[in-house]
Computed example of a mutant assay.
Amino acid sequence: MRIVFVFLFVAGLAAVGAITARAQDNAGQQAVATIIQNQLNAMAAGDRAKAYSYAAPFIQQKFQNPDIFMEMVTRGYAPLIAPQAVEFQRFEASGGLATQAVMLVARDGSAWMATYFMQQMEDGSWRIAGCQLEKLPGGAV
């Protein structure tokens, strides 16, 4: 009888741990999606400083001010500026790093997959540490 109780207790703890991990993943995914959406909104509004504020510190060091940052975005990541549609997809997190896949339709109607690389800061907030952009086959949507 005691073995059954110990087994049920351990199984219960494992279930609580799995639920807690899922809740943390959901909270992390929501926080990451909010940061990405906020940056997309800032870029669409032309708010360079706000868009820049969501970048990880090493990105801010590389692109030393909001104007330089937005020049880089305009040249290499134009589909991210005022997309017609945004859909958050696959999310993966491990430790203080995460990836978030985002399918979007650019202003010109072309379809893209953006994979965002996220870094968690010491205060628990998330920042964008990079983005890989891939045009989806099939042309315009």
Rank of each mutant, 00 (worst) to 15 (best):
G46I: 11
V86H: 03
Q100W: 05
A44G: 11
M72G: 01
E92W: 04
Q100R: 09
T34V: 05
I35E: 11
A82S: 14
A11G: 06
P83C: 01
A111P: 00
Q29G: 13
A140T: 14
A85E: 13
Q132H: 09
Y54K: 03
Q120Y: 07
D108I: 07
L97F: 10
F58A: 10
R107H: 08
Q37N: 14
A114C: 04
Q30N: 10
M43P: 02
L40Y: 08
Q61N: 06
M118D: 00
W126C: 09
A111S: 07
R90I: 04
A140D: 08
V73Y: 10
Q100S: 13
I35N: 09
Q120L: 11
L97H: 12
N65M: 07
A82Y: 03
L136K: 11
G17P: 05
G76K: 06
I36G: 04
M121V: 02
P79F: 08
A129D: 14
V16G: 05
E92N: 11
I35M: 10
F91H: 06
E71A: 15
Q100M: 14
C131E: 15
D108F: 08
Q132I: 12
M113R: 14
F69R: 07
S125G: 11
S53N: 03
V4T: 10
Q120I: 09
D47Q: 12
P83G: 02
V32F: 03
P57F: 11
A51F: 00
V16P: 01
G130N: 10
R48W: 03
E87T: 13
W112R: 03
K135D: 01
Q89Y: 04
A18Q: 10
A111Y: 00
V32L: 02
Q119H: 13
L80G: 09
A21Q: 12
M72V: 12
Q39D: 08
K62E: 11
A129C: 05
R48S: 13
I35T: 15
T20W: 13
A11N: 04
D67H: 08
A18M: 13
P79V: 04
G76E: 12
S110W: 00
F88E: 03
D25Y: 09
I68T: 15
G139S: 11
V141G: 12
A106R: 01
T74G: 14
M121I: 00
A85Q: 14
G12M: 06
A14T: 10
T99D: 07
I59E: 01
F69Q: 07
V86Q: 08
Y116I: 05
V105W: 01
G139V: 05
Y116F: 15
D123R: 09
W126K: 06
L13E: 02
T20V: 13
R107I: 01
T99E: 12
A140I: 11
